[in-house]
Design a protein around this nucleic acid. Sequence first.
DNA 1: ACATGCATGATACGTATGTACCAACAGAGT
DNA 2: ACTCTGTTGGTACATACGTATCATGCATGT
Lengths: 201, 201
Amino acid sequence: MAEKADHEERRRQIAEALLRIADTEGLQSASMRAVATEAGVSLRLVQYYFTTKQGLLLDALARLGTQLQARMQRWIGEARDPREVVTAILSCILPTDAESRRITRTYAAYYALVLSDPEVLERQAAQPPVVLEGFLVKQLRAAQQAGGIAPERDVEMAAAGLLAMVNGLGSSVLGGQRTGEQAQAVLDHHLDGLFLPPRGR
Amino acid sequence: MAEKADHEERRRQIAEALLRIADTEGLQSASMRAVATEAGVSLRLVQYYFTTKQGLLLDALARLGTQLQARMQRWIGEARDPREVVTAILSCILPTDAESRRITRTYAAYYALVLSDPEVLERQAAQPPVVLEGFLVKQLRAAQQAGGIAPERDVEMAAAGLLAMVNGLGSSVLGGQRTGEQAQAVLDHHLDGLFLPPRGR
DNA sequence: ACATGCATGATACGTATGTACCAACAGAGT
DNA sequence: ACTCTGTTGGTACATACGTATCATGCATGT
């Protein structure tokens, strides 16, 4: 059979074209034709690899989730102690560099879609943003048992609050109310309040 | 001249029809015709009162801001001490009752639009969500001077963090990860950490 | 060498949308 | 009483979109 082009590679190329448009102009500008042009292929090709638009949107969203996950693991990999792991988890979501700005903006573009389309909402249930909280709780608990966090602290509440805060800080950066550095400062300030100072002994 | 119908009332009627659609089906479903049908008027009327769609969108967004402001003042009015004022400011944004769910969802529907359209973003600069932070800082400072918050606390950082947290909590409720009550519990927990316990003397 | 089937291209179709245009009506000022 | 201006209705138009259809090429298995 004729396997001229790598299927998965093509799909990636097209899906990333959509993500690029969603990032820069929003999802409402991401028509099939616009995606095709952005990807440098014909409209028919987009249709061929993704029969329907919803399929393309969902596939691209899944890829975005993978990208975020990869970034997070990269950041976590550089952490040396539990506190740095927690800081990495939270900071890597903040739009402070080009990659995180792109990811955050693109997620924001999907936000309205996810809210209005129940089906997309379901498929999103297993995505990083949702699973993340449990993971963060585990890390906080580890830090607590290592003595980095006061034992009476409720780490589940802390995790929920921090994650929501990071989410909200990201929105404010995207909205132009704050710079990424300012958002980072706010986050660091709250992490200072959560973690105990290292024992000077 | 022929002033048969109250202009402002008509505009309100149409704008609120748009907000209703934005709430329930998202802004992408809010076509001029859909708004007209929802408002029970003809398409021509919508065009007459709002020449362009952008005008309608902007007007409705401004009204939404006014509604949120009114709700907040109502909530603040019931507060009896500085802590209750702060709690009111933050809690009234959380999607815990029908009205706040509606407002939050509708704002969420506008979110993508605001991000992708720089012009809308500018006009939003003087809106409640932006002005709010300064107001919250003032309230926190007042509470601090009244002895309700430890003097060494950085209230600006606290205000930024809390507002972002409430924003993020709202998103998680809308996304179905949490109930409104759970979000409220997370907020209350963090306010407990910020405010000093009342002096039992 | 050739037929098979995947891959790609060009184009058509039906629909929905924002906006514009033309017509009709009603009350107020004179 | 009449006109004039603000108001409302119906409808048309150009465009953009998602999807479907028809057609062509090209590599590969035999």
